[in-house]
């Protein structure tokens, strides 16, 4: 049995008399210890899919989620509020895109991590030591002093490390990283991805990486699911998808990765009309 399985997930948003179907029947499964990358452009429904895993989307009637999400065989969509809160953070934790706005500006970072620890691991007596260990684990130098810093005193990369420390402090089984590097510059991106890879191997957790960047998928994810307009258009092992993409959208997306030393004058862009034509002829 997979750790997490999603079957025919459909998510639609309702506003006044308008309905937008953001996810139109997505299915995937995540085994324990594996890493799944969900790749797609803005608006493809990947972030909404990630948020729906612990029902972080707005409540009905504004938003409707159907299908099945099973975590260790339990139906997430049927959980009551209390068990849902026990699931969030403890079993499935998140790291979001923008670290500076994910941290509450009026508290020290240590206090914010401690809050999560007290909530989910009440058996831990020395919370401060646990927090410092969590910060050391994500490579923050001088953690004993840094945990009393306020978010604005840290750089973007440090803030993202804090967010990762917070997510990992309660030892979740699944880490959902929703574009964790998009707001960071390229050198820091690499550091964060390397850090996530190290933590993944040392803790044995599963990771769902949401990204629009095929560049960081290689060497990080075991499997890839490509999302386009609310559907998973192609999925499979990373190497296979990267070397032999079948779907025209995947091919176009891979062609967009800039390569050093390549003799390209212009960067490739995605021609949606061409993809639509290709899809129609296929059908």
């Amino acid at each position: 049995m997979p750790l997490l399985s999603v079957e025919d997930l459909r998510i639609s948003f309702h506003q006044r008399d308008q309905t937008v179907e953001a996810v139109k029947g997505v299915s995937f499964a995540l085994e324990a210890g594996r890493t799944l990358a969900i790749v797609g452009e803005s608006g493809s429904g990947k972030s909404v899919t990630a948020l729906s895993l612990t029902r972080l989307l707005p409540e009905p009637p504004n938003c409707r989620v159907t299908g099945a999400i099973r975590y260790q065989g339990r139906d997430v969509l049927g959980l009551d509020r209390r068990s849902l809160q026990a699931l969030r953070g403890k079993e499935i934790a998140y790291v979001f895109q923008e670290p500076s706005s994910s941290l509450n500006p009026v508290f020290t970072v240590g206090a914010q991590i401690a809050e999560a620890v007290r909530l989910h691991l009440p058996e831990i007596k020395d919370v401060e030591a646990h927090v410092i260990r969590a910060l050391e684990q994500v490579g923050i130098a001088d953690a004993a002093r840094r945990h009393t810093s306020y978010p604005h005193e840290l750089s973007g990369g440090m803030q993202q490390r804090v967010m990762i420390a917070m997510a990992l402090a309660c030892r979740p089984k699944i880490l959902v990283a929703d574009e964790p590097t998009t707001a960071l510059d390229v050198t820091i991106q690499k550091q964060i991805i390397d850090l996530l890879r190290d933590l993944k191997t040392s803790t044995g957790m599963s990771v769902i990486l949401i990204t629009h960047n095929f560049g960081i998928v290689r060497g990080f994810a075991d499997d890839v699911a490509v999302m386009y307009r609310g559907l998973i258009v192609e999925s499979g092992p990373t190497e296979e998808i990267l070397s032999r993409p079948k779907h025209p959208y995947t091919q176009a997306l891979i062609a967009c990765i800039p390569r050093l030393g390549a003799r390209q004058r212009r960067l490739a862009t995605i021609d949606h009309a061409a993809i639509a034509r290709a899809l129609e002829t296929k059908i």
């Binding site: 969030r88 953070g89 934790a93 909530l119 989910h120 967010m163 309660c170």
Partner: peptide, 8 residues
């Protein structure tokens, strides 16, 4: 949202 995702 982050606090919510931590289960508060």
């Amino acid at each position: 949202l982050a606090a919510e995702s931590m289960g508060q």
